[in-house]
Amino acid sequence: MSIFVDESTRVVVQGITGRDGSFHTARMIEYGTRVVAGVTPGKGGRVVKGPGGACVPVFDTMNEAVAESGANASAIYVPPPFAASAIMEAAESGVEFIVCITEGVPVLDMTRAYAFVADHGVRLLGPNCPGLISPGKATVGIISGDIVTPGPVGVVSRSGTLTYEAVGQLTGAGIGQTTCVGIGGDPIIGTTFIDCLRAFAEDGETRAVVMIGEIGGTDEQEAAEYAGRSLDLPIVGFIAGQTAPPGRRMGHAGAIISGSSGTAEEKIRAFRENGIGVARRPVDIVHLTREALR
C-alpha cells in the first residue's frame, strides 16, 4: 500500500510546457506515473511528447483538462507569481489532490489559497516541496525514482535533499518505503506532519515512519503529541538546524527560530517525551528504523 498516490493516480501537470514542467513530466512518465493531461493557458491543443511514445494533451484550463482526461491529481510547476492562482484553479476543477512544487510563493497569497482549498475539501501538498513518491507505483513532483525501493517504511519530511539523504541511506541498507512525502519548507503549507502520520497509520503496509523536521514553527511538536496520544506506530525523528542562529531564515522561508520558539531542542524534546526515537546524525536514522521494524 501507499498514501496519497499510487498506480491509479491520474496526474494533470500545470505548467507542462515550461522548463521545469516539461522536464519533470518526462521523468514522471519514465517512472510509470500516469500523466494524463497538461495545462498551459494559451497553449491548449498542443501535445507534449514523453518517453516511450507518450503523448500528453495540453489544455488551456484545468476544467477542460479534468473533464477530458479524468485526472484526479495535479502537479504544479508554474512560476511563483501565478502559483496561488494555479492552486485555486486546481481546487475548483475537481481533482482531489494538488501537489505544488513551486518555491518562492508569496506567503500572503498562500493564506488566501489555503483557505480556498480548505473550503473545497481538497488536499494540497506544498508549496515549496519536492512532492511524493510511492516506490514502484508513481512519483508526483521531483523526487527521483533511483533512490527509493518498495518496503514497509513511510518517510515524511520538510526538506527535499535531506529526504534524499535519508531515503538513500534507507535504500542502501535494504530498507524500503511505502511512500516518501516532502511536505515543504514554507510557513503556510497544505499538508502537515499530522496529516501524513494519520495517513501512514491507516495504511496497512506502513510499519514504521521516519519523520524529518527542521527549525521553525510547532508542526513537529504538535505531530509528536498527536502520535504519542493517538498512534500505535513506531516513529524515528530527525531535526535539522541545531546549530542555526535565532532570527535568521535558513534557506527555507519557514526555517527560522522566532524569539525562543521553533528551536531544534524544543522539537527534539517533544519527540522524546512522546516516545519518538531521535536520530542525532543522518546515519542513525538507519539503525533506529531497523530497530523500529523489529
Binding site: S157, R158, S159, G160, T161, L162, T163, Y164, E165, G185, I212, E214, I215, F238, A240, G241, Q242, T243, A244, M250, G251, H252, A255, A264, R280, R281, P282
Partner: peptide, 14 residues
Amino acid sequence: GAGLAMATMDLVKY
C-alpha cells in the same frame, strides 16, 4: 538544499 545544509552544519558540530 536548505535541510541538508542545516544537517551538514549540525554534523560538523556533532
